[in-house]
Amino acid sequence: MKINVKYFGMIAEAVGKSEELLEVNEAISVAEFKDQQIRKYQIADPESVQLAVNQNLELESELKEGDEVAFLPPFAGG
């Protein structure tokens, strides 16, 4: 299945790109996918990275064909 992955802020800088289309060969949870990509790109401070799947912050579901996964850096509000 194909997953569209977007990287923002310092994560995009660490990865060296802002977007990629990945082929995933098996069912994978969002949390497993996050861990896999963090190891692949050696992203610093993985605990502060949030994922949005189809623009919803979550880690509990499994990815599906065509999902958009965004890796979001820490952000502050005020």
Rank of each mutant, 00 (worst) to 15 (best):
V24Y: 02
N54T: 10
E62D: 12
F71E: 04
K2P: 00
A70Q: 08
E19G: 04
I43F: 06
A44D: 15
V49T: 10
M1V: 07
V5M: 02
V69I: 12
Y7Q: 07
E58V: 10
F71V: 10
S61C: 05
F33E: 01
K34L: 04
V53C: 02
V5D: 02
R39I: 12
L57I: 09
L51C: 03
E23N: 13
V5F: 00
L22N: 08
Q36F: 15
V24L: 06
Q37D: 00
L21R: 14
L22R: 13
E68C: 11
K17G: 00
S48Y: 14
E32K: 06
Q36C: 09
M1K: 03
K40M: 02
Q36H: 06
V15E: 04
Q50L: 15
I28S: 08
D67Y: 05
V5L: 03
M10L: 07
E32A: 15
Y7W: 03
K34Y: 10
I38Q: 07
K17C: 07
Q36E: 15
K34W: 07
F71D: 02
L21F: 05
K64W: 02
E23F: 08
E47Y: 10
K40S: 04
A31N: 12
S48G: 11
Q55T: 09
L59N: 10
P74V: 07
G16T: 01
A31F: 15
I3K: 03
P46L: 14
N4G: 03
I38G: 11
V49I: 13
E65D: 13
N25L: 10
E23S: 09
F71L: 10
V49E: 08
K64G: 01
V49S: 07
I43Q: 05
I11E: 02
A76C: 10
E68N: 14
P74L: 12
Y7E: 07
Y7T: 00
I11P: 01
A52T: 06
V69D: 06
M10H: 11
F71R: 13
L22Q: 12
E47N: 15
E32F: 03
E26G: 05
A31E: 15
A70D: 05
I11S: 01
K40N: 06
L72S: 04
K17E: 06
A12G: 02
E19C: 03
A52M: 12
F33K: 02
G9A: 12
A31T: 12
E26M: 03
S48Q: 14
V30H: 01
E65V: 13
L21N: 05
P73H: 11
F71T: 13
